[in-house]
Every structure is written in structure tokens, then in C-alpha cells.
Design a protein around this nucleic acid. Sequence first.
DNA 1: CAGTGTGAACCTTTTCACAGCA
DNA 2: TGCTGTGAAAAGGTTCACACTG
Lengths: 225, 225
Amino acid sequence: MRERSIPEATVGRLPVYLRALVEMAEQGTTTISSETLAEAAGVNSAKVRKDLSHLGSYGTRGVGYDVAYLIHQVRRELGLTQDWPVLIVGIGNLGHALANYRGFAERGFRVVALLDSDPAKVGEDVGGLTVRRLDELGGVVRENEVAIGVIATPATAAQDVADRMVEAGINSILNFAPAVISVPPDVSVRKVDLSIELQILAFYEQRKAALQAVKRGRAADLAQV
Amino acid sequence: MRERSIPEATVGRLPVYLRALVEMAEQGTTTISSETLAEAAGVNSAKVRKDLSHLGSYGTRGVGYDVAYLIHQVRRELGLTQDWPVLIVGIGNLGHALANYRGFAERGFRVVALLDSDPAKVGEDVGGLTVRRLDELGGVVRENEVAIGVIATPATAAQDVADRMVEAGINSILNFAPAVISVPPDVSVRKVDLSIELQILAFYEQRKAALQAVKRGRAADLAQV
DNA sequence: CAGTGTGAACCTTTTCACAGCA
DNA sequence: TGCTGTGAAAAGGTTCACACTG
């Protein structure tokens, strides 16, 4: 295929494939079939083949994909051949965790600054960086060419922080605050909401419990007959 | 409509509507139109109406939805009228943050236990709970009727922890570890992967940069003519 | 007459199934 | 022969547009 614009759903899975591929490479695997990769990524093989076909024809029929080459191609496609300076606003519990998260650096996301509006937190040392004042945001973005901002503030502060980020020229935001933020159409926002995930699980959990009850009910009915 | 099985996409948005509705109620709003709710939730009004129609006909034509009543219905549908005991395994940076996250308790998710396999962490006090040994998991689940487990361990430990959770009878798992875990088909898993979110942002960020370059290229071409 | 509820059209994503190639 | 790459079919989700009603 190799046509412009990879489907959103595919973009969301490429990082998962990438992780699986890197693991394979570390274990010394040099070639992988869509079936094996699918298993490692928790999807089915048709999906893997369709997804990878959007990057180009990098497989060999009858054999599979060359792991190292595919890693390179996926990295290139995702834009991970370059370093991405990231800043984090809101150094509470979550901000701390994010600042110390080693998984970011491993994938080329370099945390260059931590900001907080609370004077009590400014100056604190977290994960090798000193927490700065929120109004230094513009300067930090300019100095480090930050393109990605992470919001880890309480919900009430999220929109203000987002506005400041946009103002400073950031146009990709990862929002952990439990709030909907509005930004200009050319700015990408992704949202991670911890309690929403639990609520979704609760829904399915409840439904399972209800199903069990129905089953038990039927069993009882049958026993009565 | 009010037919069995609400679409997955709708289930994912109900918590967002719920949050917006609760905010509205706190501000004293008693009635809301799909248009207003849509704006607060960051979606369009047709989607809101379709989504809500899956719960039943709770709106009034020409008027809108009764906020309090709709909150009740959404809560009921999501299974939030009951308390959900939750346990967290892996009390590193992220586990700490999750243990202290107030948003869980506010929505009826009660953290009843924190577990870690590292003896150095066992006994530590985090957010009012004492960290326990991982092998106490079975007992904790039984005592508290835990139905939802949160994995906040490193990737290498995730599958083992998931196995223990399943073994103990948990059948809803929220996985923060950057690893694919496999569980029986009747167990629900949701995954939150911090670095995957950044990778997705990087992809779109890169594409935006490429587009800018093309535009600049065209501008240069035009200037040449 | 303002705003819901919903068929119908449309678009995206997934799955199927197999031709074609190393 | 085994596995990729991909049209075609199916499923799922979104948007449109309007009949209907309080």
C-alpha cells in the first residue's frame, strides 16, 4: 500500500508492535511471522498484516518480517528516530511518578522541565530536575524547543495550563487531569483518565455479575420444572 | 431504544458525561440540552443523543434532560451505585500516586489493599494503608470481595501478578505495566500505557512538522515562479 | 418552537479468505 | 509450501437530517 495517512487505529497499535519487536530482538529473534507478533501484541494476525501493510511491503512471503528492519521502519514512521523534549506541569503524586518514569527516556522522550504553580513545590528536586515556576513555561518551551506538554494538575487548573502551553507554541498535549480541555484544532490532545478506566471496568464487571444472576435464575427455574 | 448491550464506544463516554453532569449539578443547573452537554464533554450533540438513547428515553423534547435524573441513570448503568473494592499491586512511583489519588474514592472505588513483592516496601505506610506481601493477595480478595485489581508493577512482573489475580477470583484488571498480559476470556483487562500515549502524539507531531515543511516548500516554489 | 429520538447514509475498522510470491 | 499482502464482506461507529412532541 504505502499511501499517505495511516489509519488512527493502526497508529495506536504501532507502539505495541514496536515494544514486542524490541523484546524479540533482545531475545535474539531475527525473523517474525504476523502470527507470532500478533500473539505478543495481543491482537490477531490479520490485523498485524493490515497494519504493517500501511507502512509498506516489508515482509517476505513464506518467511515473515525481519525484526531489526521492521523495528527501524516502525520507529521511523512513529517519529522516534528523533528526541522529543517534554515538559510536565503539575508535580503532585502523579507528576512525581511521571517525572521518575524511566519508560519515557527509553523511548526518546526527554523530560526537560517540571513546572508547578505552587510556590511550596518550586525549587524542589524531583528526578534530577528542579521544579520551576509555572510562568517560566514560555521560556522553557523556547529554550528547549518543547513540542509535547504533559498536564498532571488538578482538573481546575487544566484549562489554564493548556492555554499557556498553546500560547507558548506547544501543539501536542497529554492530559492526565480529569477535565475536558479545549484547544485550537491544530493542537493534538490525548487524555488519560484513571477513574474513567475504572468506571468502564465497573460497567462490564456489573454486567458479568448480572449475567451470573440470570444464569443462576435459569438454573433455579430448570430445577423447579 | 433501551435494548440490551450498550455499544463499547458509548460505555467509554458515559463516565465523561457523568463528570460533566455532576459539575453542572454542583453549579445548580437542573436541566441540560444535548448541545450543552456535548460541549462540556468535548463531543457533538448527535453523539450525546445517540449515546443517551441507549439508556432509555430520559429527555424531554423541546426542553432537554433533567440533570439529577440523568446522573442517577448513568450511575446506575455504569454500576456506580455500589462500592467497588480495589487493590493495587506494585507500590513504586505510580502505585504511590494511584494509592493517593482522591478521584477513585470520589467515584466509589475504595482502595482496600496495597501489595508489593519487594520486602523493603512491605510494612510501609502509603495513603493510610500498610503495604502487604504479594502472597497475601488471595486472602485480601476473599476478605474484601475485591473484583477489580490494578497492576502498577514493572513489565516483567505483570503477567505473574495477573495470574495471581485471576487465580484469586478477580475478573477485572486495570494494567499500567507496559506489557501485554493474557488472561482467560471472561476476565476484562484495560490497559493504560503512558509511553504509548506519547508515541502516538509524536507520530502526529512529526506529521504536522512534515506538513509545515511541504507548505514551506510550496511557498518557495511559488516564489521561484 | 426548541430540542429529543432515530432511521438512513456514511465512514472507519475488523475480519475473512485467498491469490501470489519467496 | 508457508506466510504475506490485499480485495471484498461484515461489523461497528459517527453524522445527518427531520419527524415528532412537550
